[in-house]
Amino acid sequence: MNYKRWFTDYAPMILIWLGLVLLFGILSDNFVTSRTLATLASQVPPLAIIACGMTLVLIIAGIDLSVGSTLALASAMLGVALVDWEFPLILAIVVAVITGGLTGLFNGAISVYLRIPSFIVTLGTLEIARGLAYLATDSQTKYLGVALEPMARPLPGLGVPISFLIAVVVIIIGQFILTRTTYGRYLIAIGTNESAVRLAGVPTARKKISVFAITGLLTGLAAVFFTSRLGSADPNAGVGMELSAIAAVVIGGTSLMGGRGSIINSFIGVLIIATLGAGLAQIGASEPSKRVVTGLVIVLAVTIDALRGGFFQKLKMRFKTGTL
């Protein structure tokens, strides 16, 4: 990938993020500090990992509204496995990830085989998974103590927790799969025009189901980091997280109509949302202004992305014709 391409693809989003960091840096003396950055690094992994799956789902022109509830269910299962079943940590993590994967598989299979729009299926799963999370925990927050602590602790010398490193790896792998593999190519193609892909002889059902299953697995993984950061499994966790994830992905320029998207830009979208949240809290912004500002930034970022098509295309053309 050459630097021009890199420039047009990622620069606008990164600039928005840096702009926010700068803005809060001016407004607060303590924002641009290693402590704040370390806090952000520990906050973003769950949403970043979910946004990775959500990007894939939106690329195939689907949507997954159940991720918040799935996160709560996987988190609940992690708590149950650790506390009630007394599983070792690794096994408990596997239980959580598989719980997420099965939920995703359910979404995908129902939506593809029964041809129900994923919006409706996952809206149903949003309720089902939340209910199951309450059942699994008996509606009680489970305190997990120090069992998960190592995963939340910053790594010595790096200042970021392992969850952040894993999230970055997931995102790089995700972007690689999307741009370099046949699987990623097919997902983009399916999202662009499924009918044409089918008539080109490419089977689509399993690929679509797999995207939902992957999103579920990633949500399960996100639940592990989410739970480890809070030290507790809360059946009320992740309420509204689907909207944060969709917002981050859309800020990153992924099309709700399918066929277009970038996982790296989704990650920057997550950074923007998290930075905004942390910054507004740090400057002690009032509740109403927090909401208004967050909404404005989402609209602004999406507008810039929409303009990018025109403005940066022109820039690209000028590169080509040598007038720049």
Partner: peptide, 10 residues
């Protein structure tokens, strides 16, 4: 948790 982190940083 997010709000608390921000308060501790600030």
């Amino acid at each position: 948790n997010n709000v608390a982190s921000a308060m501790l940083n600030e």
